[in-house]
Design a binder for these strands. Structure first.
Lengths: 225, 225
DNA sequence: GGCGAAACATACCAGTGGGTGTGTTTGCAC
DNA sequence: GTGCAAACACACCCACTGGTATGTTTCGCC
C-alpha cells in the first residue's frame, strides 16, 4: 500500500521520456516488437478481446517491459494509432516524385494505402482501433482528416490543371473518396474477404473516376495502361 | 457435475422453441426489452465491452430471463443481428408503393436506411456487431448481400427504364452504394458526429448520381424538389 | 382450482485480465 | 571497475464477468 515508490521513472511518459535522453536501441526494439504484436492482435480481435498476455506471448516481451514503455493498455492502443498516423504522414514523400499529374498521383497514393491496409499490421490494427476505442475522436479526426486533406490537395491541383469536370466540389469528392475506401475495407473485413479490397476499390474508381475527371483525362489515362 | 438436469426446456433453442408453442405475450415483451437494451449497449460499447449485467440493469430483466431466452452472450448478439436483418427485409414494403420510378425509390429507401442507422438501436447495434463479432461472416453476408441485392434490383429496373447512363454496371454501382453508406456511417461514428450522416450521404449522392443517371432524369429529379 | 410447464429471480462460482510491487539485469558515464 | 539509472522479468492481487444451479412466480388448460 506504500505509495512511496520512487520507481516508474517516467511512468506514463514514454513520449516525454524519449525527448531528453537517447533511447537505447534495445529498448527501441522491444517497444517496437510489443507495438507490432499488439497491432496484430488489435486488428484480429479488436481492443477489448485482446489480452495483454497474448500480446506479450507473441512479442516475446513481458509485463514489466510493456508497462515500462506504455502507461496502460489504452495508452498502448493509442500508440498504435499514433504510429499509424505518423506513417500516413510519411507516405506522401515515398510515392509522389514520379512526375505524374495530380489525379494519377492520387490513384498511386491510394494504391499504396490499400497495400498497407492489406499487409501492414500497424495500419490494420490502427484503423480497427479507431472504431473500437471508446473515446478516440481526436485521433480519428487526425486520421480521416489527414486523408481528406491529402485528397483535397491533389484534387484542387487537378482542378487548377483543368482535369476535373465542371461542378465538381473537390472537398465533397475528397471526403467521399475517403469514405469509399473506409466502407469497402470495413465490408471486406466483416465478410472475411480482406484480399478482395483491391478489386472492390478498383470497381469504385470505375464508378467515380468518370464522374470527376474530364473525358480527355480519362481517355489519356485509359490509354496509358 | 450431474448432467441429469431436466431443466432448460428448450435451452439454446429460443428459435426452435417458438416454432411449436405460442410464446406468451409477457415472454415476448421481456425478450424484446432485453434484445433492445443489448443492442443499445452493443452499439455504444461494442460486443466485448458490454457486460450482461449492465444490459439487464437497463432492460429491467435478470440473468434467469436472459439465459432462458438466449443460450449465451454470443447468441444474444446474433439475435440482435438477425432481428436487424429481418427488419431490413420488412423495409421494402413500407416505402415502395408511391409510384416512384426505380431510382427515386432507391433514394427513398436509402433515406429510410439512414433514419434507422441514426435512431433504431437494433440497426445501430447490429451493424457494429458485424465488425465486433469474431465469426459473423455468414450474417454479414446476409446483411450486406441483401443490401446489394436490393440496390441491384432497383438499378436493373432503372436500366431497363432507360434511366441509367451508358456503360454503367448495375452490380458495381449497387455494391459501391452499399460501401459508401457503410463508410460514411463508420467515419461518422469514429468521429463522434453521428448526426452528420445524412448530410454526408447527400454529398455522396451529389457525387454519384450524376455518374449513373441520365441527364434527363437528373433534370427532372432536380426540378421535383 | 389446481397441475404442470413456461418464465422468470437470485445466489454463487470459477476463470480471466488489467494492473502493481519488487527483484534483477543491462548499459553508459567517469 | 564501479555506481546508478534505464530496461526488463516475475509473482501476485483483485475486480469483474460469463455462466450455472436452484428456488419462485406466472400462465395456459382441463
Amino acid at each position: 500500500m506504500s505509495s512511496t515508490g520512487p520507481r516508474r521513472p517516467g511512468a506514463g511518459g514514454a513520449g516525454a521520456r524519449a525527448d531528453r535522453v537517447k533511447p537505447q536501441p534495445r529498448a527501441r526494439a522491444t517497444r517496437q516488437a510489443i507495438l507490432t504484436a499488439a497491432a496484430e492482435h488489435f486488428a484480429r480481435n479488436g481492443y477489448h478481446a485482446t489480452s495483454l498476455d497474448s500480446v506479450l506471448a507473441d512479442s516475446g516481451g513481458t509485463k514489466g517491459a510493456l508497462y515500462f514503455h506504455f502507461a496502460s493498455k489504452d495508452a498502448l492502443a493509442r500508440a498504435v494509432i499514433a504510429e499509424m498516423v505518423q506513417r500516413w504522414r510519411d507516405l506522401r514523400g515515398q510515392v509522389n516524385s514520379h512526375g505524374l499529374d495530380p489525379l494519377a498521383t492520387l490513384l498511386a497514393l491510394l494504391d499504396e494505402v490499400i497495400a498497407r491496409l492489406l499487409d501492414d499490421p500497424i495500419a490494420r490494427g490502427g484503423t480497427r482501433l479507431l472504431n473500437d476505442l471508446p473515446v478516440a475522436e481526436e485521433q480519428a479526426r487526425a486520421h480521416y482528416g489527414f486523408g481528406e486533406q491529402e485528397c483535397l490537395d491533389l484534387l484542387t491541383q487537378a482542378a487548377h490543371a483543368g482535369l476535373l469536370r465542371e461542378g465538381i466540389d473537390p472537398a465533397v469528392a475528397a471526403r467521399q473518396i475517403v469514405a469509399i475506401v473506409a466502407g469497402n475495407r470495413q465490408i471486406c473485413d466483416a465478410l472475411g474477404e480482406r484480399h478482395d479490397l483491391r478489386q472492390r476499390v478498383e470497381q469504385a474508381w470505375q464508378l467515380v473516376l468518370p464522374a470527376i475527371a474530364t473525358d480527355t483525362w480519362l481517355a489519356a489515362w485509359r490509354a496509358s495502361r
